[in-house]
Design a protein around this nucleic acid. Sequence first.
DNA 1: ATTGAGATTGGTAACGTTGTCAATACAAAT
DNA 2: ATTTGTATTGACAACGTTACCAATCTCAAT
Lengths: 315, 315
Amino acid sequence: MRSGAKAGNGKDAGKNTGKLAMRSVERVTLRDVARRAGVSEISVSRVMRQTPNISDALRLKVTEAADALGYTPNRVAGALKTATSNLVAVVLPSMSNEVFPQVLDGIESVLSGHGLCPVLGITQYDDDRELEVVRELLSWSPVGVILTGLNQSDAIKRMLAQHTIPVVQIMDVEGDPLHAAVGIAHGKAAREAADLLIDKGYRRPAYIGAWSERPSRSRIRRQAFEARLSERGFPLVAAHISPAQSSVETGVAVTAMLLAEHRDVDVIFYANDDLAMGGMFHCMSSGISVPNDVGLLASTESISVKPHRLNLPPS
Amino acid sequence: MRSGAKAGNGKDAGKNTGKLAMRSVERVTLRDVARRAGVSEISVSRVMRQTPNISDALRLKVTEAADALGYTPNRVAGALKTATSNLVAVVLPSMSNEVFPQVLDGIESVLSGHGLCPVLGITQYDDDRELEVVRELLSWSPVGVILTGLNQSDAIKRMLAQHTIPVVQIMDVEGDPLHAAVGIAHGKAAREAADLLIDKGYRRPAYIGAWSERPSRSRIRRQAFEARLSERGFPLVAAHISPAQSSVETGVAVTAMLLAEHRDVDVIFYANDDLAMGGMFHCMSSGISVPNDVGLLASTESISVKPHRLNLPPS
DNA sequence: ATTGAGATTGGTAACGTTGTCAATACAAAT
DNA sequence: ATTTGTATTGACAACGTTACCAATCTCAAT
């Protein structure tokens, strides 16, 4: 597969004398730039890194030589020496749920503003895979890790403890973060949703979920929702959790089924956006008026942040 | 901001004697594992890499020591030595358009099956940013690069020419790829769409786009669509390209506006899924029957692949 | 002129790994 | 017993960069 790389290492001694760099087999290094500029390697390094206290003369010589040679710094070497990088490990469970691309988009835009690069790992909600992914990403000495959810396996926590980099856990804040958590208080949000529905006068609520509730966060939302409804005296009239993957189509199908079986339902709480969108489609195409005939609710977001807890030894 | 990392480097000389690794300040290296296992560093390296010709005795000693110390290989050092990595640079213009998360999902799943990691860069459709992103990602010695579209700037092409890694350009195949292209033949697809509509009997087609047609691919689709319609004798009746960002809401609004102004339109071709979904919503909520009153079409995908052209010097 | 405090440059030695070349062990073939 | 071959292990030197000391050099104050 990766053959062909054995490219003839032979006689490439000819210097680039022209202006445009020819295809160079050997990588252009600091040494090459230094030689061409007639300065030391370390000086080139400093110019490239914008270190303070560089004379204009030196800077000029170096940038000229670097441009001429088409020099690209080798961060791998730099990272080895400094034991840091500009990489941030980002571990997400999936890209199918619409929320994760959005989250990733946000992560990327903030990171890139700080000169950092996200390295992506996707676990497919599989704990073993998550361990592998984290191990893989940690081997690149990232400066930080972003994980999804608060309940990583002990193996992962142990592995993270070997490093001193900050860990941010996203999507959930109801629990104990390793360092910091940013996300949704799912239980609180679901209770607020229940309160909202009841306060609005709905009395016969139903719930629709999908895909065996893989992200445990959706299970937490459902349970909190259910519990709060019961507390308030208006328990769930119906609930259907489809084994199918969450999607607009699933939302259409399950909504149709549920409303057919339970004509008295007056509001439906959906596990996520896709399903709710499907519900909306079903109602629109069936002449069911929303929210007059049936109310639809996808989620109440109540984002909060747990501040970074410094990782100090218990004193 | 990134303070606090200056953590006391002091007296942590105590060996890990317990079973659970304590927070170790120093990184565990091959050397540590080797010492503990009573073998050479290179042997540890070989065991970790599953090199052939290793005795079971050695393998056992090494894995035992590695587990005990919680060793994680340092790929940065490995990458420096071997001048290769398991990273693949992935450069996308955006995460907002639903297609890119899907593409990224596909990329990640295939890559991870081969032990590769995507490193992500997002350009926001900005050529300067694309150059920066590519430079940044190349500095990590990826084994390959995935770019979006076929029209990168010359600066980028020159930079890529410095390396010998394969470049895959996605989303478009109508043009000359650097090495290989995988994507949609946009012009062909749009012409087929035009044919399809006319063959189905539609006679008064309209077009809806958004966001100033930022990805030039959508402009290509529109132009090809328009041209083909004219060829067939049924030119566009109306077109509206919203300055707003493409979204379901924009789709609703623009569809409403267009249908109000042009009651005779019998089919609408949308620049993308989001807009079409908005159009669908508008029709459903306005009692317009699809496809009886108006037909809606988002895209005809006609994926093709240009095979890898080996990067040989002209002979 | 002399001194001293920056500012500016360079030399050297790592960082943790792996390719290359040897060295050893051990079995099979003579 | 000797040779040959193969399986297994090790020593050493890089990979390209940067941290850590020096070594100059400049310029103003003594």
